[in-house]
Write a protein that binds this DNA or RNA. Structure first.
Lengths: 145, 145
DNA sequence: CTGCAAGTTGAAGCGGGGTTCAACTCAAGG
DNA sequence: CCTTGAGTTGAACCCCGCTTCAACTTGCAG
């Protein structure tokens, strides 16, 4: 098993179920060669792809988006450290954005806890873009009773 | 429309589709009285519940969990500011935890970008609990080629 | 050569979070 | 009244990310 990994090995090493690996293959996220007997054999570099997929998922990226990103890797050669780093960097930006949003949500929530409000119309937490303004009487800042 | 809201009004004010509101009702997340002609009429406090639901969803909480949390609200009276604040505070903790996890993910990703690695076995990013240790040859820290 | 674990496939199922549809009924203004 | 828009229902459907199943076939150790 020096060169190629069986699906069982890839699964054990990556912690991803075999069924999920086959599913990823169907979606074009990973690739496998076949033995004469039609069994999958994975190149070691697929380990890295799988790792990348799981990490991206944790960042909240859909499999379709991940596929698109992976498609940008050079097909001709095994991706280098720089190739991966480049992709990771774009994930890093996504992560930053997510963290930023969640932090804001938290801060807004703090403000709302202060007044006990969860006002739909005024609360930045629920209505960040203020796109429901001018709706008539509207919710009040403080609970009626 | 001083006292009760129709489903159309609640939908417009909350930005949540009518179908979703009916769905939430089926799941026991919100309630409605009925007119003599069987139409839903929502108490204004339901606006607040809906706001709460959407916020909780953004934090990544399932509808079932949200239902459980909302069930802890006093059924006998309209929830007060303090009731909401108490719930919000527990969400705040969830948010903190999520932010903590994502920040760690980001820091780990930074480290990995530094070395170009996405090693399954060594990388804390992918294998935080180190639960795959001792798997044989294993992935190397630096890409083979 | 045999026997058993490991691998193969397509189709179906699942849980979450809804949307869409058909076939009605209600409410309210002219 | 009558019309028209708003509401009602259950059932069916959708997308996502998988898992499970049945019915085989391969690979390899003894």
């Amino acid at each position: 098993m020096q060169e190629a990994l069986t699906i069982g090995q890839l699964s054990a090493r990556s912690g991803v179920a075999q069924s999920a690996l086959r599913y990823y293959e169907r979606l074009g996220l990973i690739r496998a060669e076949r033995t004469s007997g039609n069994q999958r054999r994975y190149h070691r570099s697929e380990l890295r792809r799988v790792a990348f997929i799981r990490i991206a998922q944790q960042v909240g990226i859909s499999l379709e988006e991940i596929r698109a990103a992976l498609d940008s890797l050079p097909a001709a050669r095994t991706p280098t450290a720089e190739d991966w780093a480049k992709l990771s960097t774009t994930w890093r930006a996504r992560l930053d954005e997510k963290i930023r949003l969640m932090s804001r949500l938290r801060d807004d929530l703090d403000a709302c806890i202060g007044c006990g409000c969860l006002s739909l119309r005024r609360c930045t937490l629920y209505n960040p873009e203020d796109n429901l303004a001018g709706e008539g009487p509207g919710a009040r800042l403080v609970l009626p009773g």
